[in-house]
Design a protein around this nucleic acid. Structure first.
Lengths: 120, 120
DNA sequence: TGATTATTTGAACAATTGTTCAAATATAAT
DNA sequence: ATTATATTTGAACAATTGTTCAAATAATCA
């Protein structure tokens, strides 16, 4: 016998169509949602949250960051590249060293808001 | 010839010991940092941010959520389990259906703060 | 120039994540 | 009891992620 295939995706039938449409209407765009979770992904790793925290206090060179985290230089450098690509940190070269600092005031607000959450 | 192994980890030498120690001193605990990135991990997936958003508007059953996201019931149920385990959503059974709602006012603040960030 | 130090990069690898599919519960209706 | 519907679960799998190691730049110094 024929099965009901009238629904949009995966044959999922909605129970309360009014609710579903209301929520769909105000749902932020896929593009925004993707950017949003991309930002959260950056903070979804302890090494990176520590880097963000450290740089919120001080401008630091790579080896000092590595020292603070207790991680290898290479690991830290890879993480810094991610933060650079997301424009969350900026850097300046001084002689052989590269000094990093926060390039985004928002990320700090997110970090603090998250920490508040965790601490209660 | 002997190499300098006096530093704590990975032979990383710190450049500015004062800075390093100052930052280390105020760095939140590993435990807090781990919890923090765990929370951000939850929001690091578009499917979950959409669920959080949807539930911030309405209490919804699983199939309505699936409908809103355009995902399969099973995929949504797996994601809901993650949110349940993190105590971010609660649910009640009504007949055959399971209705989910937000169980955490903080997560909404994080979501909004993130969206603000993304939108400028 | 060659040697040393600071950082970046690429490849390889293990670990984690998210989806799919099929099977298992759970509840209600016939 | 049998059937149908709603949801959960487990196993398998592909995709992504983070680390390590070694090699490549880049900048300074002898």
């Amino acid at each position: 016998m024929p099965r009901n295939r009238e629904q949009d995706v995966c044959e999922v039938k909605s129970v309360d169509t009014a609710k579903v449409m209301a929520v769909k209407k105000t749902m932020p765009s896929d593009r925004d949602m993707h950017s949003l979770s991309e930002i959260f992904s950056v903070l979804a790793d302890p090494a990176r949250t520590k880097i963000i925290y450290a740089l919120s206090k001080e401008e630091l060179c790579v080896c000092d960051i590595a020292n603070i985290l207790g991680n290898s230089i290479s690991a830290v450098s890879h993480q810094l590249r991610i933060l650079r690509n997301m424009r969350l940190v900026k850097f300046r070269k001084e002689a052989k060293r590269v000094y990093y600092s926060l390039d985004d005031r928002h990320i700090n607000r997110l970090f603090d808001e998250g920490l508040k959450h965790v601490r209660e």
